[in-house]
């Protein structure tokens, strides 16, 4: 698997898009820091961007890479390599290079600005960890969608719809359900709803850590009230890991049972 990972990673590192993504975060980091002139405020603004953008990039890169490397995959399938190694290697290659762009792109400006001297270093680290998780989750979802659809256009469409649903529509439905059923006790429903959406989960996780009640949306407020800060942090982290591990397992299963 490591060999495949190496080749996929090199392949992506040579592609223009990894640099575009890296430069985007680099510029974003610098601009936010100079506009806000405050590291902790910049972290909050960044969170709002990361939570929507990272999943989108993960989804698009994942689908594009899968379809573009179809030939490479077919070449590898005839070689003495385990099937799961081929797909996991490619997946970690994509997710790894995206995470690297994110961490370096945001890390460099913040470190230059004096992150290590400021007290938000843990919040910032948490932000990067959640970003990494979102990359892992949405890239694997994109891979699953791509492997299940031979038709590129369909695969691309489903992938973008999945992102749109989890990033935008889900919250809308959630809020609507809260308004419609406001007379009922909704705590457990809201909690469940958050756990089933990695984007909400990531947002809650960061907000709980940042401890800024004003920025907690309704979803976060319920979560915090119910769990208290530490337990909430622990549970949401655990669920994020589940959100990563289970789809990877599903991808391996799909890869094992597909004809090429």
């Amino acid at each position: 698997m490591l060999k495949i990972l190496k080749y996929s990673f090199y392949d992506l590192m040579r592609s223009r898009w990894s640099y575009v993504y890296f430069l985007f975060y680099l510029v974003l980091g610098f601009v936010l820091l100079f506009l806000n002139n405050d590291v902790s405020k910049a972290v909050i603004t960044l969170m709002n961007i990361i939570i929507v953008l990272v999943p989108l990039i993960g989804t698009i890169f994942g689908v594009m890479y899968y379809y573009n490397s179809k030939e490479f995959t077919e070449l590898l399938l005839a070689q003495p390599i385990k099937r799961s190694s081929i797909f996991l290697g490619q997946y970690f290659g994509v997710a790894g290079s995206l995470t690297l762009s994110l961490v370096l792109g945001l890390g460099i400006p913040f470190v230059l600005y004096g992150l290590f001297k400021s007290d938000v270093i843990f919040n910032f680290t948490l932000l990067l960890i959640t970003g990494a998780f979102l990359t892992l989750i949405f890239t694997v979802l994109a891979f699953i969608i791509a492997i299940s659809n031979e038709n590129k256009i369909k695969g691309f469409g489903y992938a973008v719809l999945t992102w749109l649903f989890l990033a935008v529509i889900y919250d809308g439905l959630f809020l609507m359900s809260l308004i419609i059923f406001e007379e009922y006790p909704l705590d457990s429903l809201s909690l469940g709803a958050i756990l089933f959406n990695p984007i909400d989960l990531a947002r809650t996780l960061i907000l709980l850590k940042l401890d800024i009640s004003a920025l907690l949306g309704y979803t976060g407020a319920v979560f915090k009230q119910f769990f208290g800060t530490n337990l909430g942090l622990f549970i949401s982290m655990g669920v994020l890991i589940l959100w990563t591990v289970l789809p990877i397992g599903w991808l391996t299963f799909k890869a094992k049972h597909k004809d090429f």
């Binding site: 080749y7 392949d11 040579r14 592609s15 490397s69 179809k70 030939e71 490479f72 077919e74 070449l75 005839a78 070689q79 003495p80 390599i81 385990k82 099937r83």
Partner: peptide, 29 residues
């Protein structure tokens, strides 16, 4: 999967990753 070590396969349609050089492809395989 290990048995594929004993088989050489020439696929019908020669599709290779386009951004690799011939030399790199040979080294990779």
């Amino acid at each position: 999967w290990k048995y594929r070590q004993e088989i050489e396969y020439l696929p019908q349609i020669a599709n290779f990753p386009g951004n690799l050089k011939v030399k790199e492809l040979i080294t990779m395989i």
